[in-house]
């Protein structure tokens, strides 16, 4: 099988003055195409004014620990596929 295009995490500034928010992921051969793909995939309804893309395996993230309540974050590891930053509902048109 051929090599799969890398996974990118997409962050979009929905309106001037807001911060970039994680909106989802997609595949692209490189950063330039990832930005274009993000425009086509994640701004179909005019949702964005600025796009950031980060290759998924370049993201460092806190991770849940095994102790106490099983799920509290502590040790730092890398997210491979972080489609999981919370997207608040009230952001609306993102």
């Amino acid at each position: 099988m051929s090599k799969e295009w890398p996974l990118w995490e997409i962050f979009i500034r929905g309106q001037h003055g807001l911060s970039h928010r994680h909106v989802g992921s997609l595949h692209a051969p490189d950063a330039e195409m990832a930005i274009k793909n993000a425009r086509d995939v994640y701004t179909r309804r005019n949702e964005g004014v600025s796009i950031w893309v980060v290759e998924a395996n370049n993201i460092s993230a806190s991770s849940p620990s095994e102790k106490g309540p099983l799920y509290e974050p502590s040790e730092s590891k890398i997210y491979r596929h972080p489609t999981f930053f919370d997207i608040p509902d009230e952001v609306g048109h993102m």
């Binding site: 995939v41 179909r44 491979r80 596929h81 489609t83």
Partner: peptide, 17 residues
């Protein structure tokens, strides 16, 4: 697009698209 979002959700479980 919906297929794409869902594949991405599945990919977080350690399987590739």
């Amino acid at each position: 697009g919906h297929g794409l979002y869902l594949y991405a959700a599945a990919e977080t479980l350690g399987v590739s698209r």
